[in-house]
Design a protein around this nucleic acid. Sequence first.
DNA 1: CTGTATCCTAGCTGATACTG
DNA 2: CAGTATCAGCTAGGATACAG
Lengths: 118, 118
Amino acid sequence: MVMNQTIYEMNGKQFQCPIELSVSIFSGKWKTTIICQLLEGKKRYGELNKNIVGITHKMLAQQLRELEEAGIVHRQVYPATPPKVEYKLTVLGEGLRPIVEYLQEWGKHFESSMSTDP
Amino acid sequence: MVMNQTIYEMNGKQFQCPIELSVSIFSGKWKTTIICQLLEGKKRYGELNKNIVGITHKMLAQQLRELEEAGIVHRQVYPATPPKVEYKLTVLGEGLRPIVEYLQEWGKHFESSMSTDP
DNA sequence: CTGTATCCTAGCTGATACTG
DNA sequence: CAGTATCAGCTAGGATACAG
């Protein structure tokens, strides 16, 4: 059963149900793309920047920071020159895999219904 | 396996994978709340407006329209005075139920990790 | 290589009033 | 009852330049 009416709060934002909270986690233009990337495994900052077409330094850094603060992404710094930073999903982040896979299935289903339904 | 790099297009917006497309469907401040409501069953406009705390006419109408255009919500008008309009999920929309339920579970898990993790 | 800091804009969102 | 119209504010996102 799907709940509602209860008010959840996090970082000053309010949510009417846990689902809103979850969705707010990967709302943001690049969050899902980043998560997709990291579902493939550990990645360096530069790799992400190269793989994710169109993203800017600012947005990549910012969205990574938000994912990190949410406890979804772990940031590993190797002190060296030049610096090396690796990002990977936390256990919590890995828990998103089934959702992401289901979203992918549903997205494909959605696409095909678009061509036959309108 | 999670795909990427392929470009999907819909309504002029571009997506790098089906997941982005899916997420874009229920991104929007009230979309998930509306979907939650309709997962409980058919609802009238006034019911939604009453149940969803804080939403305005404009946003409710607008988000419902977008969900309708995406083929997630069906709008049934009963010609009468005063008018009566019912909204319900389409088959495609019902397909979101497992996602919503998983998001709820994950959201709760997320909450508890917030209190023990930081 | 891995970021910050600034500045700027489009578009989402809300308040309010009006309508069939 | 179930919307639409208009206007205004905020904020997410992008371009660009700078930095450790």
